[in-house]
Every structure is written in structure tokens, then in C-alpha cells.
Design a protein around this nucleic acid. Structure first.
Lengths: 145, 145
DNA sequence: TCCATTTATATATCATGCTATCTATCATGA
DNA sequence: TCATGATAGATAGCATGATATATAAATGGA
């Protein structure tokens, strides 16, 4: 998350020592990118929160759901696809399982690995949330044009 | 922060029910925006962390430093400029004060408000960090062109 | 004047990110 | 075959975001 409400002007950026190597415009572009993304993420988190989820829990479900030709992933495969540390995945799994969105069971060939799959409740939730999710993304892109 | 390492393809987005109201391309644009910003923010946090700071602590100092014609801000003014909740500002202030980057004192006219100003140590730190900060922003913009 | 309201900031507590470390299981080569 | 190292995942504990609430000072109308 980026935490500045009002970006500096190009003049202000130029005023800072060290900004002379790069164009102030480039700096403003970078700050604008982070600001826009942060506003988008705040809105998404608020949306997910109103449905008892979070962005991470939603994406956790999505990466399983979107896998072609498979209906389950191991914890490690989920960790590979999500940009968070392993322990966060482990805890998120515990929460999603407690909430009845996923089930997990030991792999029968390798007792170290755990297979995670979505419940019907999760499929129903995704089906319900995706249209609004896409609508928010589209709206945020539109509004900044 | 956005937590997906690999974005879905346009085809995959189209495959999801509800995506038909908006173009898959728009959705990909939004996801790309969040992904790029998140990578940028991760890199910045790592940079700040290696200097004993965080993005928030850095921006806290910046908003005071960049104020024209003033060398101090109240806690409320800092909260107005930063996109975090009040209690986070209060705690960040405590940390920055303990680290010797800011000093604070009660306003003499209004005992409720507290004036915060940068120490010479903070000015020196900003002067040292800003060139690298701008270089990272510029590099991240370049790399995604 | 004085009590009710507003304003400025701090405290308490929770949720969730991180790194470091642990346990259990598997694989391999002397 | 069994000790060594690699791999999968979980646990411990910290840092820092959020919301709800408390405290203290200023303000303003009866």
C-alpha cells in the first residue's frame, strides 16, 4: 500500500536533490501508479470485507478455481501462485477451512504434502462475487482515464 | 498489496461468468496496474528497511519536509496528508521520536494539538535517501515499458 | 457561567503481513 | 539399510495495518 494522499507537484519533485538524474515526470508517473493501485486495492478490500473475505482469501480460492484440468492444488502450489510468504498461506488455509470454503487432505503418495480443494460453498461464492469484482476493476480503470 | 504472481490470461478472464459486461482487456489492465504497483512497493519497502525505515515512516518525514513556508506540522495535519488511520500516525510518531527523527511539543495556543518537526538527523537522512528513492521509481517505470 | 458538544490525540485490541525456526517425511548414496 | 540432506508444511513471535473507544482541551449557546 502507498500512503500519500496528495502527490507532490513536478516542481516539488524537481526541488529535491537527486531528482536531476531522472525526469520529474517519470517520478510522478511512478507515484501516480502506486496511488491509483492503492485506491483500487482499498476499494477491493472493502468489497471483500463486506462479504466476509479478504483480497488474499479471495485470490487463494481463485488460484485453485482457475487451474485448468485440476480440481485441487497442494499448499506449495498455492504458495507458488500467491505473492505471500508460506506461513501466511498456512494460516489462510486454516481460516478458509474453518469457514467451510476449502477442504484439505494428505496426499496418499507423499504424506508431507496436502491437497486443497474448493467446496461447493466456495464455488457459489466466487460465482456471486466475480461480476462485482470485475465491475469494480473496470470502474477504477474508467474513472482514471 | 496485490498478491497474485501470475495474472490470468484474457481468455481466462473471459471464461469467468460476469466478465461479459466489461472487456477482458480492461480487467487485465487493472490487474496489471495493481501487480506493477505492488512490485514497486515491495522493492521500496525493502530499500527503506535496509535503512531502518519503512515507506510510511519515510512519507511521514517527507510530508513535513515538503511543506512550503513551514518547518512543523500538527499530528492532525500529518494525518490529513497520509492515507493511514489516526492511531497508526500516533504510533509512527512515537517510533520516529524514539529514533530521533522528529521532536514534538504541545502547541502553546491549543494544548490539544501537538507540533511535530524534523531533526537535523532526519534532514540528513532524507538528503541521503532521496536520490536512491527516485532511482528506484525511475527504474521500475523504465523496466515496464 | 457552565454543561453539552466538538475537536485533537492516544490507548486497547484485533487482523494479517513478515522472518526464523521446528517437525515430519522423503530421497539417496556409503 | 541407515545416516544425511532436502522438501513440505506448521508454529512462534514480531511489526504494523485497522476499528472502537477513551481522555483532555476548547467552544458555544442557555
Amino acid at each position: 500500500m502507498f500512503f500519500l494522499k496528495t502527490l507532490p507537484s513536478a516542481r516539488m519533485v524537481e526541488g529535491y536533490a537527486g531528482a536531476h538524474n531522472v525526469s520529474a515526470e517519470t517520478i510522478i508517473d511512478a507515484l501516480t501508479l502506486m496511488r491509483r493501485a492503492s485506491q483500487m486495492i482499498r476499494r477491493l478490500e472493502s468489497f471483500f470485507s463486506s462479504h466476509g473475505l479478504s483480497q488474499l482469501r479471495f485470490l487463494f480460492l481463485i488460484v485453485i478455481d482457475r487451474e485448468p484440468d485440476r480440481d485441487r492444488l497442494t499448499v506449495g502450489e498455492i504458495t507458488d501462485r500467491l505473492d505471500v510468504a508460506g506461513p501466511v498461506v498456512a494460516r489462510t488455509l486454516r481460516v478458509l477451512e474453518a469457514d467451510g470454503y476449502v477442504t484439505s487432505q494428505k496426499d496418499e503418495d507423499d504424506a508431507r504434502t496436502k491437497q486443497v480443494r474448493l467446496t461447493p460453498k466456495a464455488h457459489a461464492l466466487l460465482k456471486r462475487l466475480l461480476p462485482d469484482y470485475f465491475a469494480i476493476l473496470a470502474d477504477e480503470i474508467e474513472r482514471s482515464k
